[in-house]
Design a binder for these strands. Structure first.
Lengths: 141, 141
DNA sequence: ATAAACCTGACTAAAATAGTCAAGTATATA
DNA sequence: TATATACTTGACTATTTTAGTCAGGTTTAT
């Protein structure tokens, strides 16, 4: 069970961006350098973030990206959702009426994984970008 | 972010095993048939569970596996640990003193992933095999 | 004796991941 | 208006992980 780097990078990049957001658009090149993430990869990630209206792009010289919402309105859920980082515990969710194992009932542990998904998603729904920034300020990293 | 089927199967198989545990050893063949899990794969999984002393094996005809502890003493953590299902959020944990990104400081979101790991692990530490069995009895699956 | 069941290690196909690469388009500024 | 900066898009690929399979054992109740 692990987090993909696409999800991690998306959050890292947005925290970075949010810190400089007030003044000017932030270029991916700068984020790339500061955070040590490949520029090409960042572009893929921001393309998705833009489509989900989490950031806005500013083209041309001095361009870059800007947050499209307030930092406290952007939750981790939104970010992960944008880059297709999902919490998957069981396969059998959407496939017809069948349960897991190809049988007609739910598997013995179905409810468990449901609980787990909820548990994790709650965490993601509560944390906002603002929380992360505050957290960093306090720890002075 | 997803659970591997090795982890899922391990838990499913143990719940199945625990339900029949009182009377006789339970053969992997039976579990395989009831849960729809490949016998060969189950053998790999139980080999690990045995090494971590979660189950005991009984060889020969009428053999099988038996729980090695009480169901309320076996937590999800123990099971996942046995089959190498770990919660991994960040790479940079054990590598020297360096932080993430190859820089000397922690990455902006390091603490976040730490929190997440704890959040998930708490869930796993609280749930025992007994809880799962009770849950199934109540729901009559 | 033999069949049921555990035991072990090597192997592999398929999927997912983590990017790279190439070829653009838009625009602020000199 | 030339041009460098920065966004935009889609295709491609190497590596790793996953989810098993396969082949050969060993043990022991009957």
């Amino acid at each position: 069970m692990k987090l993909t780097s696409k999800g991690r990078y998306a959050v890292m990049a947005l925290v970075d961006l949010a810190r400089f957001n007030n003044i000017n658009p932030v270029s991916l090149r700068d984020i790339s350098l500061r955070q040590g993430i490949s520029l090409d990869y960042l572009e893929q990630i921001f393309s998705k973030l833009r489509k989900k209206e989490i950031v806005q792009s500013v083209r041309g010289i001095q361009g870059g990206y800007v947050l499209n919402k307030k930092a406290n309105e952007i939750k981790l859920t939104n970010i992960f959702d944008a880059v297709d980082e999902k919490v998957k515990t069981v396969q059998c969710k959407k496939e017809s009426k069948k349960g897991c194992n190809g049988k007609s009932t739910k598997c013995l542990t179905h409810n468990l994984w449901d609980e787990l998904e909820n548990h994790i998603n709650n965490f993601f729904e509560q944390k906002s970008l603002e929380d992360l920034i505050k957290d960093n300020r306090e720890r002075r990293i």
